[in-house]
């Protein structure tokens, strides 16, 4: 039976603003299926975003939503979580919003291990502002500001998150649409800061500059480069050259969670009166 997305979408908001073939819609469907499978209550779920193409997502979802300043989704979301620790806080954003303008907020949210879920849609470019290169644009690839190829190496968001202290890190792709909702559901259930990176496609500003003929070619590229973590264990380093691991990459359930630790601080302070 067809999944009923309508109950999670604000009436009259569709069609969305994303370009034809943009994977953000696929990720939004995955998020809706994940929230529905966990039976989250709309009044106890907050979706927070910054600025960018991907950050338009909360505008369409019918629950508590915040559309905030550029890169500051993690800061605003931390405020929501500290004021109401019982809420499910989900952050959404793109690679530029999350790792460049909001890079500092991102790593410190990881470090604190506060119980939130950050979904980063990595399309390797700043789409909304006209295709400038982002920290995730691979070396040599073209953007509107690097017409002769990008000299910078790109970030590996998952490794960055693990290094900064996030306790659940997963990666999926817009091609593997079936997997997205499962990864997001597992991330929401995890107690601690969880990061889900979804590799995405931007046919309008990234694809056409980098000689992708169509959306389908971009989707098939995601299919080709993605290797599930379990399959990668049996592969040699040579075979893994140029591949990107997908699935749950890191999970640590031993690290203390921030809101619980902060509650203990309040208790100690009140006892000391």
């Amino acid at each position: 039976m067809a999944f009923d997305y309508d109950k999670w979408i604000r009436p009259g908001k569709l069609p969305h603003i994303w370009c034809p073939g943009c994977g953000h819609g696929i990720v939004m469907k995955g998020l809706i299926r994940a929230m529905d499978s966990l039976n989250l209550k709309k009044e106890e779920t907050a979706v927070v975003s910054g600025i960018g193409c991907a950050s338009r997502l909360p505008g369409y979802i019918d629950c508590c939503t915040l559309h905030t300043a550029h890169g500051r989704a993690a800061a605003f979301a931390t405020g929501v979580k500290m004021a109401k620790p019982e809420m499910n806080v989900i952050l959404v954003g793109g690679d530029g919003d999350g790792t460049a303008i909001g890079g500092n907020h991102f790593i410190h949210a990881c470090r604190r291990n506060i119980n939130m879920t950050y979904i980063i849609m990595n399309n390797y470019i700043y789409g909304m502002t006209g295709g400038q290169f982002s920290p995730c644009t691979p070396t040599g690839h073209k953007a509107s500001t690097t017409p002769y190829g990008n000299p910078d190496p790109g970030f590996d968001i998952a490794k960055l998150a693990i290094g900064a202290g996030a306790t659940f890190v997963a990666r999926g792709t817009a091609f593997h649409a079936n997997q997205i909702d499962k990864l997001i559901a597992e991330a929401i259930q995890h107690k601690g800061f969880s990061v889900v990176e979804i590799l995405d496609d931007c046919p309008t500003t990234y694809g056409r500059r980098n000689k992708y003929k169509s959306v389908i070619e971009m989707m098939n590229r995601l299919k080709e480069v993605a290797v599930p973590v379990k399959a990668a264990e049996k592969m040699t380093a040579e075979q893994l050259q140029g591949k990107i691991l997908t699935g749950v990459l890191y999970k640590d359930e031993t690290k203390p969670e921030y809101t619980a630790e902060y509650a203990k601080v309040i208790e100690r302070a009140q006892a000391a009166k």
């Binding site: 067809a2 034809p20 819609g25 469907k29």
Partner: peptide, 11 residues
Amino acid sequence: ELRCPDFAIKV
């Protein structure tokens, strides 16, 4: 239905 990014198909 799963892959349509625009919520345009229902099976």
